Deep mutational scan, measured.
Amino acid sequence: MATGGRRGAAAAPLLVAVAALLLGAAGHLYPGEVCPGMDIRNNLTRLHELENCSVIEGHLQILLMFKTRPEDFRDLSFPKLIMITDYLLLFRVYGLESLKDLFPNLTVIRGSRLFFNYALVIFEMVHLKELGLYNLMNITRGSVRIEKNNELCYLATIDWSRILDSVEDNYIVLNKDDNEECGDICPGTAKGKTNCPATVINGQFVERCWTHSHCQKVCPTICKSHGCTAEGLCCHSECLGNCSQPDDPTKCVACRNFYLDGRCVETCPPPYYHFQDWRCVNFSFCQDLHHKCKNSRRQGCHQYVIHNNKCIPECPSGYTMNSSNLLCTPCLGPCPKVCHLLEGEKTIDSVTSAQELRGCTVINGSLIINIRGGNNLAAELEANLGLIEEISGYLKIRRSYALVSLSFFRKLRLIRGETLEIGNYSFYALDNQNLRQLWDWSKHNLTITQGKLFFHYNPKLCLSEIHKMEEVSGTKGRQERNDIALKTNGDQASCENELLKFSYIRTSFDKI
């Protein structure tokens, strides 16, 4: 039985969820670079991206490699990797027998973001014989899940209580170790020597080791999670996991709180800001991140802002960003909400898709409305799209047979046209069989910064309504002859009103 693990408890099935942008060198404390989270699957090609990484700022997932063999891993080693800020997950990587050479110096898994409450997941690794993470000293947050690894031993010899604050939620089941077939031998045991430290858990006094050649490092209890030197002297209180010299914040392997210019500090002093819960960055760093993602459509890219001495992905609820200094300031009234469309555009074809934009005031991208039916549609669209004030790209209304009016965009005031449909149009209306009105132009103002209007096959939309939009939106004169079809717009509506004058002759039985 794995020490510190839980057996036999019912657990939810383990679901495996399925960018080499360097964020800056980590400095003297770390020998390499800070790398983003990685999802490495199918083959070993991307694994080489770990070569210079000291910190993975995010998670590391290595999974679904069915053609790899043990010899493929023999020359692979990433000794610079010290810390993973989120979680480490391995799933069905064939041929991998140990992690001792792959990650010989991995010391800390912070667990800032977890995989279903777990910071370390080893699942269905069919050839893994031992973990071998002999320098792993601290899992700051989260638990361990090690399950269905039929060859995995050296679990009962690990004292997880020396690595985690609590072992109650560890789930370590259905491994070879369960069948008591392992016969784990710690260093020196074969020669009758006791080389590794022994600890007591559940009444068992057991030597602690990761492999037959690597003991588990056990520091004096007084050192807590700070770690200790090879001689057993406690590291500085700002260290986490390990250090090369005692009581020196510049000799830590990793930091308990924050890293700044080669030393570990309790908090980031001005003019620095907390970033990702582990390091200090200056304003320029946060500003660069903001600008890199301002026009990016890459998933996970955030326009970072500053709030409460932190550089964070977005302002919290009730705050909006001051564009001059990136500071989050309290909103006066309802907060603006910028919604970034991942692929640059979004099609609204149902109430469900409209709900995804609920509360958005600025759309960074283009909207395509293609709704053919739905219950209580006008009210639903207004509830979900009615706060949109600005669209950076274009607005396209296409084959939306259920629409009679666009009044559900009740606050839309600006279409920038930074991206144009077919390279020309910022407003595009095609084949809307029941569209009769755009907006009530006596109450609604709309500016279209650039781009043209396109109207074709809107049989109940009168040309007068379209011409009014040209005047109000500032697009009059931009359109070419064929942009607004004269014969297919309003051709099934009563669009022309003329005053009919009647004269009559009164007659009676005795007068003409």
Rank of each mutant, 00 (worst) to 15 (best):
L44D: 13
G58C: 01
K224V: 11
F283W: 09
C311S: 02
V144G: 01
D165L: 10
F103P: 00
H48Y: 05
E238P: 01
S98W: 01
E231F: 15
L29M: 11
N242Q: 12
L60A: 01
N117S: 08
C280M: 00
L174C: 07
L120H: 00
Y272K: 07
D261Y: 08
P70F: 05
L164M: 08
Y319W: 12
T45S: 14
N170K: 06
M38D: 03
C215N: 05
E49F: 12
Q299C: 07
Q299D: 07
Q303G: 12
G203I: 04
S143H: 09
L44W: 10
L50Y: 05
Q276N: 08
Y30A: 15
C280H: 00
P104H: 01
I56D: 00
C223A: 01
H226R: 13
H127K: 04
L164R: 03
F91L: 04
N308F: 08
Y94P: 13
S237C: 14
N105I: 02
W160P: 00
L29W: 12
T320K: 06
N105Y: 10
R141K: 05
E168F: 04
Q276W: 04
K217T: 07
D75H: 03
F78E: 01
C235T: 00
L136P: 00
T189D: 05
H236Y: 03
L164I: 09
L96H: 01
K176T: 14
R162G: 04
D177F: 13
V144P: 02
L233F: 06
L60S: 00
T211H: 05
L96R: 00
I62L: 09
V218C: 09
Y304N: 01
F116M: 08
K224P: 09
C264L: 00
T140N: 05
D165V: 08
C234N: 01
S323K: 05
D178T: 06
K129R: 06
V173M: 12
S323N: 03
D178A: 12
P334W: 14
F258I: 03
S317M: 12
Q61R: 15
G58N: 00
Q287I: 10
C228Y: 03
K292C: 12
L128N: 01
Y259S: 05
Q204S: 13
C235M: 00
G203P: 05
N202C: 05
K191Y: 04
H214W: 11
K310G: 03
K129Q: 14
I122A: 07
V253Y: 15
G183D: 13
V253S: 14
C223M: 01
V218A: 11
I56Y: 00
L133P: 01
R256E: 08
N135T: 12
P271C: 06
T85G: 05
C280Y: 00
C286A: 06
C264I: 00
L155I: 13
Q299T: 14
P271Q: 07
I163W: 01
L289V: 12
C239H: 01
L102P: 01
N195G: 06
C223T: 01
C315L: 02
I139H: 01
C328S: 02
P104E: 02
L164S: 10
E71P: 09
L44I: 13
V305N: 06
T211E: 15
P249E: 09
F116I: 09
K292S: 13
F285L: 12
D159N: 13
P271W: 15
L29R: 15
L81T: 12
F66A: 04
G300L: 11
N105R: 04
K100G: 05
M321H: 14
P330S: 05
Q276A: 06
Y87D: 00
I306V: 13
P330D: 14
A119M: 00
S143T: 06
S225M: 10
L327D: 15
S296D: 14
C286V: 06
Y273H: 13
H28D: 05
L102S: 01
K191R: 12
S324T: 08
I185W: 15
P36F: 03
L233R: 05
K251W: 03
I122Q: 00
L155D: 04
S237W: 12
N170C: 05
I185D: 06
N179V: 14
D247A: 08
H307A: 06
M38I: 01
I201G: 13
M38N: 06
N138L: 07
N42P: 05
T68S: 06
S77D: 04
K191L: 06
V121D: 00
S161M: 12
K310A: 11
T140L: 09
G262L: 04
L164V: 15
R256N: 08
C153E: 01
W160H: 01
L96S: 01
S244N: 07
C328A: 02
I146Q: 02
I158G: 02
V206Q: 15
